[in-house]
Design a protein around this nucleic acid. Sequence first.
DNA 1: TATGAATGAGCATTCATTCAT
DNA 2: CATGAATGAATGCTCATTCAT
Lengths: 216, 216, 216, 216
Amino acid sequence: MAGVRDGTTPNTAAALRDPQGPPGRTRTIRAPETRRAQLLTAAGALFIEKGIGSVSVADITTRAGLAKGTFYLYFESRNALLEALRVEVMGKAVEAFGRLELPASADDWPACLDTLVNGALDFFIENRDLHDLLSSEPHAHSTDRGEWPLVMSLHGRLQELIAAGIGSGALAADVAVAPTLVFELLHAAGHLLGDGADPVKVKAEARRMVKAILLS
Amino acid sequence: MAGVRDGTTPNTAAALRDPQGPPGRTRTIRAPETRRAQLLTAAGALFIEKGIGSVSVADITTRAGLAKGTFYLYFESRNALLEALRVEVMGKAVEAFGRLELPASADDWPACLDTLVNGALDFFIENRDLHDLLSSEPHAHSTDRGEWPLVMSLHGRLQELIAAGIGSGALAADVAVAPTLVFELLHAAGHLLGDGADPVKVKAEARRMVKAILLS
Amino acid sequence: MAGVRDGTTPNTAAALRDPQGPPGRTRTIRAPETRRAQLLTAAGALFIEKGIGSVSVADITTRAGLAKGTFYLYFESRNALLEALRVEVMGKAVEAFGRLELPASADDWPACLDTLVNGALDFFIENRDLHDLLSSEPHAHSTDRGEWPLVMSLHGRLQELIAAGIGSGALAADVAVAPTLVFELLHAAGHLLGDGADPVKVKAEARRMVKAILLS
Amino acid sequence: MAGVRDGTTPNTAAALRDPQGPPGRTRTIRAPETRRAQLLTAAGALFIEKGIGSVSVADITTRAGLAKGTFYLYFESRNALLEALRVEVMGKAVEAFGRLELPASADDWPACLDTLVNGALDFFIENRDLHDLLSSEPHAHSTDRGEWPLVMSLHGRLQELIAAGIGSGALAADVAVAPTLVFELLHAAGHLLGDGADPVKVKAEARRMVKAILLS
DNA sequence: TATGAATGAGCATTCATTCAT
DNA sequence: CATGAATGAATGCTCATTCAT
């Protein structure tokens, strides 16, 4: 299965061959961030449309209106783009979840949880791609240890919140289990919203459930 | 569970026994269902081990002890096997969820929900592959119609149950939303179990949550 | 240069896409050795024509009248074919050089050296590719230590012969240096022959030189 | 050496020179000959280090401290640089071989040949790259005309010398064959020296051999 | 003149699928 | 029915070369 690479010169073959065919198309120079964003955006859209596994680098660059080689100016590999997308989405997620302030008194917890749910759902709606990026290809990550650092930090935030609530006696749940289950509950609600379910209903139901689950 | 070898295995074994025989081609005939099952089992095991995308048809037939070409005698394509596996797993799921009887009186609902949660989690533990098969590559399907028919029917069962509970006044939830969210809650709990979390804690917490969510 | 492969599913993408285009061309089944030889022969010819670095796997299979994929049924990689070719050529070389018997008395040395030269040149003529395979890409080998095992064994044979001659007093030369220089002398003579020089002249001159160099 | 990719800056060289300045673009103007020499030197060093086929234009310009595009201001193509390097090396070679004066009387020939050998070996030691440049990729050239023009002129010098020697009766050899064989003998000796063989031994042996071969 | 982002042809390799045996 | 050699489309990636700045 391997593929013995021994430094010989296989690829440079092209170099030894002859020149070009016809000229090129257009050529536009842009700020690195623009290009990176272009590619990230194109990739995200395609991943949502066709599933990560079905999107090739060529698909991405075509959609972004760039040449294939340009991709590798901004990402080391297809997987690097994937990772970057995860990180990007994660950044938004952490931000979305992180804005919450811990309630001062037990009476404030319901409102806090409502805020949490609303924020989370808003985030999930605005980042439908997150669903795919986080849900699919779980195996890609379990390999290099670290078990999904992205979701971890998201969970981490939730965990802190819940732990604090339990500590203050306002919440009642298992600190080891509840964060994950609540997270997935919200994730699923986000899916529902993305699939066109009635936002009012879904949000209300999600808020009701989370409070039912966590409030002591 | 995995590669059920029945001692009469074709090629490899023969080759070892008779390293000389020129073309060395063994042929074993089996009931179609046996072959199909062999392939399904091998595929399931491999998908769990390496992730769906990393398993080739050759991997599957090798593990099943069959020739590559034989695969196409039993499945139209690689995707057909995938679909078949989904259906198979789905069968078990529906069965697992379907065994529940509707409670006669409101007092019986807590016990019923406990049974539901326990059954669901047992199912998820025994069918870890389901996680991957259902969670990953969802878009592969949304394209060719049906929007996740598998999960749908699983949800269907849950939905009936919940609808009945609401109808009888024993449960209080949104019929359109709750089944999905509860399903994903259970799904996530199954994941936790598969990842080695304390089964007692997880199950207890899941039961507590589901009841908190659904009981009126 | 890297190429981070982490088991994710990049290549299987095709699998998730749709089926085929038009049917195929011809399809002929042959004994493995036939195919291997076909490829080796085609590769050898092309390497001579265009230089190793300028020959692609596609070039080879096209010349061999096979499909690109077929190449990988017989060789693990492009480099594996290269190695196989080296080994093959080497086999012939060792055989060609190995047939020599050590002369019994000092008087037999001139005849022995004549035989050596004739044999070596015949070999070089019949294996023009050897020139390229042995001469080019020296760096490919200096990496995995062992410093060109092929040539080594060829030299080894020459070395034994020369060492024996010196030991018996029939030859006079430096055992560490002479084998290499004589080898390259013969190699160069082979080149000349391959390039169309007058075989009689070249052979005679080579015989004269080797004897002048080695006989004490 | 590899190519440190961090996915964010396509502009590596500039970034290293001017990590702050926003567009960070340095520009230095030099005499054309300086630039050419810079590139030639960098290329030569890299070719020796990694082998011709493994050195990209980017490698060369990076090593030379120039931008990739600048390369094409001084060389029409990668192959043109190769050719230029060959010519350059050749110049040195011809010079090294050309300094020899034809001996006046037959008695001077041994000394002349010794000088020749010493000069040639010194040249080969000082220009190890020549080995690679001359030995590898010979076919790249036989295609586009000229049959190794470099070596030809080197041979030419040797040929004149030998022809003169034969004409004067001091040497005895085939004018068509001997130059090539002697050249390769020296070439091989140079290789040996480059590989660390005992210089005294090698040089002595080479002188002995050349005289044994040529002196009548 | 110098720069380096952009280009796209080309390459090695994989793998689902077919079909002669 | 079973087999596995053969196929070729598709993919990730490299790199010589061009050109807007």
